[in-house]
């Protein structure tokens, strides 16, 4: 065990400048990588917050539009249309399917109001 440690020590001592340079380079690289990661996380979190705010705004707008649409649907009633001078359609005549006439041709086969 001691011999192994001694051999390792000798080798390391002979190459101490090279090893120091490699270790410092590795630390520098990892520090830069760490800084990049932190920047990446921070910027993505900020972007997430921004998107979250936009989603909130859009969600609120959609909800308001849904409410307006439903309210408009409910306001279109026969009474409301009557205020604009519109009346419910009246059936002028009914042509039964069982008695089509040649003069009416295809229209007779529909059996709908004229």
């Amino acid at each position: 065990m001691t011999k192994t440690i001694a051999r390792t020590y000798d080798t390391a001592f002979e190459n101490r400048s090279r090893i120091t340079a490699i270790l410092l380079s590795a630390c520098l690289f990892m520090a830069l990588f760490y800084a990049y990661d932190v920047y990446s996380v921070v910027s993505k979190t900020v972007a997430l917050e921004k998107v979250s705010r936009q989603t909130t705004a859009v969600s609120g707008a959609i909800s308001a539009l849904d409410g307006s649409y439903i309210a408009l649907l409910g306001s279109v009633t026969p009474d409301a249309l009557g205020a604009y001078g519109l009346e419910a359609g009246q059936v002028a005549a009914y042509i039964p399917l069982s008695a089509p006439t040649a003069s009416l041709g295809g229209l007779a086969s529909a059996g709908h109001e004229l």
Partner: peptide
């Protein structure tokens, strides 16, 4: 969702976001 006669789906109950 509600469903109108033409098939349009309108949110009847949804989750809204805010702060």
């Amino acid at each position: 969702f509600f469903t109108s006669k033409d098939g349009t789906e309108t949110a009847a109950a949804a989750v809204e976001n805010g702060y």
